[in-house]
């Protein structure tokens, strides 16, 4: 599904505070499976997620998505691919305050120009699946942590992506909620979606729902 070869990423290139977050990563991510990146903070796993998820471009190296080289694409096209292929669940949930749960969920579909009625219908189906139906109209800042994450999950699914990317999904959840999340994760696999996540939570990386764990340290892959 996704192949990375010799991928490097630098920040503040050419300046005194130049910093290489990734030093040549070679990795293949299989379709339909759950892959976890494990490593201490600062190991480069989030940077790697952004490169795979088309949020940023590698400084050098290649990223292939379904065989197509996407590493040199301008942002305009990366965005298009990102919107169609990836759904994101962020550590801080990153919901927009002041908007209702429903509005937040349909936001990623706005640039597609799909009619509102269609989006609302799709969002309602997702809400039912995630047992959030009763909270659809509530403003997101009034929701509990678990509910907020489920809104974020629904948002990640609104464009029906093939790949779900989750950055430290259980960092802000207690054990019960984390288990609940893992159950939802299994649902993704059942639906044929590819999942890529970062975590150092044993509950996640040791769970049977995760098929493969990739270790990272100092911008390089290490044996897990």
């Amino acid at each position: 599904m996704i192949q990375l070869s010799a991928v490097k990423k630098a920040f503040n290139q050419g300046r005194p505070n130049e910093y290489w977050a990734l030093h040549g990563i070679d990795l293949a991510i299989e379709a339909g499976r759950v892959t976890a990146l494990r490593g201490p903070s600062g190991s480069g796993k989030t940077t790697l997620l952004t490169l795979i998820g088309c949020l940023a471009r590698p400084t050098s190296g290649r990223v292939r998505l379904r065989g197509e080289d996407i590493s040199g694409l301008p942002e305009r096209f990366l965005t298009e691919i990102r919107r169609q292929t990836f759904g994101f669940i962020f550590q801080q949930f990153n919901l927009i305050k002041g908007l209702s749960a429903l509005e937040n969920v349909i936001l990623p579909a706005f640039p597609t120009g799909r009619p509102r009625a269609e989006l609302v219908e799709k969002a309602e189906i997702l809400f039912d699946q995630l047992k959030l139906g009763h909270r659809a109209a509530a403003k997101v800042e009034w929701l509990s942590g678990g509910e907020q994450q489920r809104v974020a999950i629904a948002r990640a699914l609104i464009n029906d992506p093939a790949v779900i990317i989750a950055d430290e999904p259980t960092a802000n959840l207690d054990t019960a909620l984390a288990r609940e999340f893992m159950a939802i994760l299994e649902g993704f696999t059942a639906a044929g979606k590819t999942v890529l996540l970062t975590s150092h939570d044993p509950l996640v990386v040791e769970s049977s729902a995760v098929h493969r764990v990739v270790g990272m340290r100092d911008g390089r892959l290490v044996d897990a």
Binding site: N12, Q13, G14, R57, P58, T59, S60, S71, G72, E75
Partner: peptide, 14 residues
């Protein structure tokens, strides 16, 4: 230089 992933190129694209 469209092939480059350098920050300058990203800035130019913006």
């Amino acid at each position: 230089d469209i092939a480059s992933g350098s920050e300058l190129q990203l800035a130019l694209e913006r």
